[in-house]
């Protein structure tokens, strides 16, 4: 947890934009380092898949978009975050330690006997809503939660992070069609569009580009942003909260799988790559 930029003063929407983006950038750099450290503790974790959504997660948790209370994880007024690409959410662990869902010391226990922090976060962990790891479920469950929140007249929102490999699951599209039809304007889908599935580039398996246009055809509002430009992600998420949005909202975050680690970036098989302790140390050392 070294060199962790302060989080005690939450970034608010009316804070100076430039200062906020700078703080988010610093936080993202820290989360990337800490995610690599977690991988050093638990080499079974999917590191490449966990490095691509770092800026997205930082914008959500530190940009004032996701309402949550680590002292009361089940707070009824919280926004719900569904980590549908479960393997790629190891970056949540340092964030959860930082904001107080878990103790900082727990990061050393990831993957260890008796720990609640496994290779894929599940609902044993405060702040995690669902059992993750099996792809294609998160958006449909989120649709049910979004309907429920509307029925309760709650203004809470549901955010779902999916991977682009995950989009090959037919159940995702059942949910996409449903959310559009039901005008679930309290639902935000974030696609970690890193372009690589398990064995190959997505475009060589099932090419879904342009994803935003496809979502718009299913009655969603959708934008595509550079998913490593934390300011751009931050602004896109702010756009999802504008009054007058009557459709489900999607942010397609163009990212790089293994972002920040040269031996992972651009390797079509990086999903299954494990870094040695030396590689972790070198990767942390070479980060900007």
């Amino acid at each position: 947890m070294s060199n962790n930029p302060a989080t005690t003063a939450p970034v608010t929407r009316d804070a100076d934009e430039t200062a906020m983006v700078r703080r988010l950038q610093e936080k993202a750099a820290w989360v990337r380092r800490e995610t690599l450290r977690v991988h050093g503790v638990a080499p079974e974790t999917r590191i490449a898949s966990s490095l691509s959504p770092v800026e997205v997660l930082v914008a959500l948790y530190y940009g004032g978009h996701l309402r949550f209370d680590p002292r009361n994880p089940q707070w009824a007024g919280r926004d719900r975050f569904i980590a549908s690409k479960g393997h790629g959410c190891v970056a949540l662990y340092p964030i959860f330690a930082d904001v107080g869902y878990i103790a900082a010391e727990e990061l050393a226990t990831v993957g260890k006997t008796g720990s609640r922090l496994g290779g894929i976060p599940d609902a044993q962990i405060p702040g995690i809503e669902t059992t993750n790891g099996s792809l294609g479920h998160g958006l449909g469950v989120a649709c049910g939660i979004a309907l429920a929140l509307k029925q309760k007249r709650s203004d809470a929102r549901v955010y779902v992070l999916v991977g682009d490999g995950e989009l090959c699951e037919g159940s995702v599209w059942e949910a996409v069609m449903f959310a559009g039809q039901q005008q679930l304007d309290n639902l935000v889908l974030i696609a970690d569009n890193n372009g690589i599935s398990m064995l190959d580039y997505c475009r060589n398996i099932i090419n879904l580009d342009p994803l935003d246009a496809k979502l718009r055809q299913f009655q969603w509002d959708a934008v595509t942003v550079d998913g490593h430009d934390v300011g751009a992600v931050h602004r896109a998420l702010a756009g999802c909260r504008q009054p007058g949005c009557r459709r489900p909202q999607a942010v397609v975050a163009r990212t790089v799988k293994g972002k920040g680690v040269p031996v992972l970036e651009g390797d079509a098989l990086c999903h299954v790559k494990t870094l040695s302790k030396e590689q972790v140390t070198a990767a942390i050392g070479s980060l900007p």
């Binding site: 809503e129 669902t130 479920h137 958006l139 449909g140 469950v141 989120a142 649709c143 049910g144 939660i145 979004a146 309907l147 429920a148 929140l149 309760k152 159940s171 949910a175 449903f178």
Partner: peptide, 10 residues
């Protein structure tokens, strides 16, 4: 099933 699950979670 997934939508029903989401409703029940709430």
């Amino acid at each position: 099933i997934n939508v029903a699950t989401g409703l029940a979670i709430e």
